[in-house]
Write a protein that binds this DNA or RNA. Structure first.
Lengths: 109, 109
DNA sequence: TTCATAGTTCAATATATCCGAACTAACAGA
DNA sequence: TCTGTTAGTTCGGATATATTGAACTATGAA
């Protein structure tokens, strides 16, 4: 039986550093995070999964990448209509792991 | 047939960010990197593999972790007698990925 | 209804990691 | 030169993780 989608958004205090680094180690996930970082608007914003993800990524793989990013506390999801909009939890991550995400985003690649 | 050990030390310019993040994502490898960061003496220094690694780590696993760390450009190895001494390539990593390693090291865990 | 779109879940497969066992390399003592 | 010891590597098989096609759910529009 298939279960319904329910997004997990851990408190950053419960996220280990390894989870964040592991999530950011994947190029497709970094691409998503970079796009969300550009989409800076705070409330009511966010990008649909397939908008932030690399264009030729298989859907199942994309969905899995978002699950990893949410579990690492890096992004927040909310369902709007038929889409799932994601935003970067930039300030929360910065408070918990100062400089880590910012340094990664600053790397040109 | 068993081949002889020969350490690979890539130019940092050839190392992708993902390799560094992936290497640092593992807790045992971070423990090694933290210990090498404390052992700050530059020339002639370095710590033997088993000295910097967590004490109860299986030797094959430990050796593999050092291979990953070297391939990520994070550490440099040189054989001295029966030991292999490792040093952190801290300045080189900092030049290539400013703030990344420092931010990771700054996290208390 | 019916259809389309966005994304998830499942399950099979591919890939990567872990680690015991066997090995090499370097040195010390007899 | 043996024999032994210590440090670490390599191999290979077991285990764990990642990828992705296909089936599915959820929402909205025609």
């Amino acid at each position: 039986m298939h279960r319904m989608a329910s997004f997990v958004h851990p408190d950053l205090e419960d996220v280990p550093l390894g989870a964040v680094l592991s999530a950011l180690a994947d190029p497709a996930r970094r691409a998503i995070v970079r796009r969300l970082a550009c989409d800076a608007e705070q409330e009511g914003g966010g990008l649909a999964c397939s908008v932030a993800a690399p264009p030729d990524l298989p859907r199942a793989t994309m969905s899995n990448h978002y699950t990893v990013l949410r579990a690492a506390g890096l992004v927040r999801a909310r369902k709007v209509g038929v889409s799932v909009l994601h935003t970067l939890r930039r300030d929360e991550v910065e408070r918990r792991f100062p400089g880590v995400l910012e340094a990664v985003l600053a790397v040109q690649e």
